[in-house]
Nucleic acid binder design. Structure first.
Lengths: 229, 229
DNA sequence: TTGAATAGTTACCGACCGGTCACACCTATG
DNA sequence: CATAGGTGTGACCGGTCGGTAACTATTCAA
């Protein structure tokens, strides 16, 4: 971690290697991933559980069933690993978007509702909030390389959501996507702050109400107010 | 900081003292506060700037123009100081609510709009989000004493906002207050994550749209959709 | 003036941090 | 079989962390 100064000698090793050797052998036994991949996914998990500043490289290496030296041969610095872990999560989220699109092809409004449902489910399951947002809270040192990763992620999220709203034909797509995005972010930190009550349901109701508000100029609104959810 | 184990010997000194000596002397020179108060407010500020894990007790003591020994005579442990700093912020926020109420007496709807405006302003001014929420993100060790402080704070906030919505006579006060609360929380972390763009305006528009959605059963809605904000 | 609190100073402790070194190990390929 | 490249091991470095001890300086009230 760059405590006060920036990392002076991060080599940022990102060589392309065989990645994972023997994805599964003849016995059907799932062979372990390559050390690098183990380290990234383990780091991801431990960062989520303990916070980025709350876990040390040694502990990450050990949990990934490898050692600090190997970790540093792949990443050069903890900050490097942080960025890679954030990118990892970021890509998983991108995959979620693709899958969402595929689940309701050519029906953006259904995709929108599906998005709400999926996020609510994620909210109910995931004890810790959004890894990227949490990282933004933790890493306040300006100029930290993770900031770029986080910004890119949030921008991409915002763009996809906005496109979805626009395709769904709501009256003010930009305003709705902003609203939904803030609601999601807010629900996540709410869950962290107000110990574990049920913000998942609240989130869903709020989202559905917001969507209903913008569905069609006049009539959809009345029904939004009349009925719960 | 309780690294892995819990604090074993936090004395939690909270004796009642004269607090601040000589609030101002004859020359009009503002005499400094008592060390304890200096430490709390300084800690508050430094926690906000660098994160709770990102600043050490030594640095706090020095910035408060005192020393570590005095700090420990007052607080017993860093965790104690953290709680006290969070309580400090919490009380300042409570004062903001009282002041909000006083600014538009007997006009809850005006108070609601004033709340939105004030939060948007705070969003524009304050580079770092909500201290309490950020603390919740940073302090993941379960059983940390700060959690109780944070929960109490969030609960109180939620209650006041809900009461305000109810008094304002909107159609679904609970849903609106949940929405507004999530929007605020979300706007704050959004500002942290997506580098400094203008979520203040977005927040305000989203809030106003949400309020308009619930203003009165039927007609207020149409105007919400028709006009921008 | 005396005495008790409170505040400041310096040094120190053990633990842990991120990061590096030298060296032995293993395994795939030539 | 030899070699090379990724991997594992353990010791080590300088620095910082939270927290304590012992002692001195200041303040203020009786």
């Amino acid at each position: 971690m760059s405590r006060t100064l920036v990392n002076k000698n991060a080599k940022s090793v990102s060589s392309a290697k065989p990645a994972d050797v023997r994805l599964e052998n003849g016995d059907g036994v799932q062979a372990r991933q390559a050390p690098r991949d183990r380290i990234v996914s383990t780091a991801c998990e431990l960062f989520r559980q303990h916070g980025i500043r709350g876990i040390g490289v040694d502990a990450i290496a050990e949990a990934a069933e490898t050692n600090k030296m190997t970790l540093y041969r792949h990443f050069g610095s903890k900050d490097d690993l942080i960025c890679e872990a954030l990118r990892f999560t970021s890509e998983k989220t991108a995959a979620f978007w693709d899958q969402l699109e595929a689940s309701h092809p050519n029906d953006p409004m259904a995709q929108l509702h599906s998005w709400v449902k999926a996020r609510a489910q994620c909210l109910a399951d995931n004890k810790y909030g959004c890894d990227l947002a949490n990282a933004a809270v933790e890493l306040k040192e300006q100029g930290h390389p993770a900031h770029a990763v986080i910004e890119n992620f949030k921008l991409a999220q915002q763009r996809r959501l906005e496109k979805l709203c626009r395709d769904a034909g709501v009256s003010e797509p930009e305003l709705l996507s902003d609203t939904l995005s803030m609601l999601m972010e807010g629900a996540q930190v709410s869950k962290l702050a107000s110990g574990s009550e049920g913000p998942s349901m609240r989130f869903m109701r709020a989202c559905e109400a917001a969507i209903a508000s913008f569905r069609q100029p006049a009539k959809a609104m009345a029904e939004a107010v009349g009925s719960e959810v």
